[in-house]
């Protein structure tokens, strides 16, 4: 017997049925959690902007949120929240912080240099690389344009 269990439609059927993710529920949770994180950010920004200039205030908001996400990651609470919040915690700067802190914490067992040091950008690396690349391309375009201005 030589049965071949890859009928051409199996893959297609699997793909279609697997799409049964709770799309509406996920979107609602992402909205609520993501919105709440941004509202907290805004709530921090308003008093900070009075203490310093708006630009620094915005950076401080980022730093505070990164600190909070790092602490929650360390306590093992961030991944529990993210499991439900999805993009609600992933897209705000909290997700960036978690993507740096979690490999650092996780690879502590492999040492401080080749573990923490080598792995710390293993997830956030793509974002940093492509942000730098996009920024530099924009800068290059600006510089070229300035030559003809």
């Amino acid at each position: 017997m030589d049965r071949h269990f890859s009928p051409p439609d199996y893959r297609e059927r699997v793909r279609r049925r697997a799409a049964a993710t709770p799309v509406v529920k996920n979107a609602a949770r992402a909205f609520l959690v993501g919105g709440a994180i941004c509202a907290v950010g805004q709530g921090l920004y308003i008093p900070l902007a009075r203490l310093t200039d708006p630009r620094q205030a915005s950076v401080w908001v980022t730093v505070i949120l990164i600190f909070a996400a790092a602490a929650l990651t360390g306590l093992g609470l961030f991944d529990r929240l993210a499991r439900h919040a999805g993009a609600g915690t992933l897209l705000p700067v909290t997700g960036f912080a978690n993507s740096v802190v979690s490999p650092a914490l996780d690879s502590r067992s492999e040492g401080l240099v080749l573990g923490v040091g080598a792995k710390i950008f293993s997830i956030a690396g793509p974002v940093i690389l492509y942000a730098t690349l996009a920024g530099s391309l924009y800068g290059l375009a600006l510089w070229v344009a300035s030559l003809f201005a």
Binding site: V23, A27, F31, V33, G34, G35, C38, G88
Partner: peptide, 18 residues
Amino acid sequence: AFVVGGALCVAAQLLIDL
């Protein structure tokens, strides 16, 4: 802030799920 931030997260979530 809530509505715009939340909406951006919804966009990301839909890209993940769909």
